[in-house]
Each structure stands twice: as structure tokens, then as C-alpha cells.
């Protein structure tokens, strides 16, 4: 499923990275700890987090993640937004809490298994 389809199905709002929404996404990863994502995030993962600071973009870029979804209507900090735009990392916002959003993503067929 492409990122664009997911955005459409779950009503996510796009804050940055419009040009990179064609990418196929099969897996999700949920964490609010940078070190965890650095260690365990896999290329192509859609990252669900509450963290809004710019380090998230750096981590997403470094690990080749498909994008970042901020939950609970958290808005990215200005420098996070700027960095995401510059690096063309999709930065999305959902008003749902993490559990709910992940549940729905899982329902759409995304898996969290680390195969």
C-alpha cells in the first residue's frame, strides 16, 4: 500500500514530503525513543511517534524510513518541519492516539513483525 493511500484512508495530514508519497509501505514501527529507532528501525518502515523535535527527521533520513506520523495532533517544531521539507521526508499528523492509529494501520495490512 502506498503512503498516499494510507493518508487517504486514515485522514492523515501532510506537513512535509509531498513528493515522496508514492512509496510503498508494508511495515510500521512505533517508538518515542531515538536510540530504539536507530537500533531497530528498518528501511521502509512508517514511524509512529509523539516526538516532534528535529532529531526524528535525522533518524528517519539515516534509516531510510518511509515517513513519520505524529500522533495525538502533535505538531512538528519549526526546525523539524524545515528539515523534513529539505530532506523530503514525509511528515504526517494524526489526531488519534498511538494505539488507535497503529490498530487501524495494522487493520490495513501493515505489520510490525521484524522479518
Amino acid at each position: 500500500m502506498t503512503l498516499a493511500e494510507i493518508i487517504d484512508r486514515l485522514g492523515l495530514q501532510v506537513r512535509a514530503g509531498d513528493a515522496a508519497l508514492r512509496r510503498d509501505v508494508e511495515r510500521g514501527y512505533a517508538s518515542d525513543l531515538m536510540s530504539d529507532v536507530i537500533a531497530n528501525g528498518l528501511e521502509g518502515d512508517l514511524w509512529i511517534t509523539l516526538q516532534t523535535h528535529q532529531n526524528t527527521v535525522a533518524v528517519a533520513s539515516m534509516k531510510g524510513l518511509a515517513g513519520i506520523v505524529l500522533v495525538n495532533s502533535r505538531e512538528p517544531e519549526p526546525d523539524t518541519l524545515e528539515k523534513a521539507r529539505r530532506e523530503s521526508i514525509p511528515l504526517l499528523v494524526s489526531e488519534l492516539p498511538a494505539f488507535e492509529l497503529i490498530g487501524r494501520l495494522h487493520g490495513l495490512g501493515l505489520t510490525g513483525l521484524r522479518a
Binding site: 514501527y29 512505533a30 492516539p97 494505539f99 488507535e100 495494522h106 513483525l113
Partner: peptide, 22 residues
């Protein structure tokens, strides 16, 4: 399981999110 997978499975079985911080 990862956080993502754990959430997904519990959600599938009917558990829902706690009321959010808004």
C-alpha cells in the same frame, strides 16, 4: 513483539485506546 505489532494485535481483538491527552 514490537510496539507496532503488539498494538495491532490487541486492537484487532477489540481493545481500544485510553482517552487521549487532549
Amino acid at each position: 513483539l514490537s510496539m507496532f505489532e503488539a498494538c495491532g494485535r490487541l486492537y484487532e481483538k477489540g481493545l481500544r485506546a485510553a482517552v487521549g491527552d487532549e
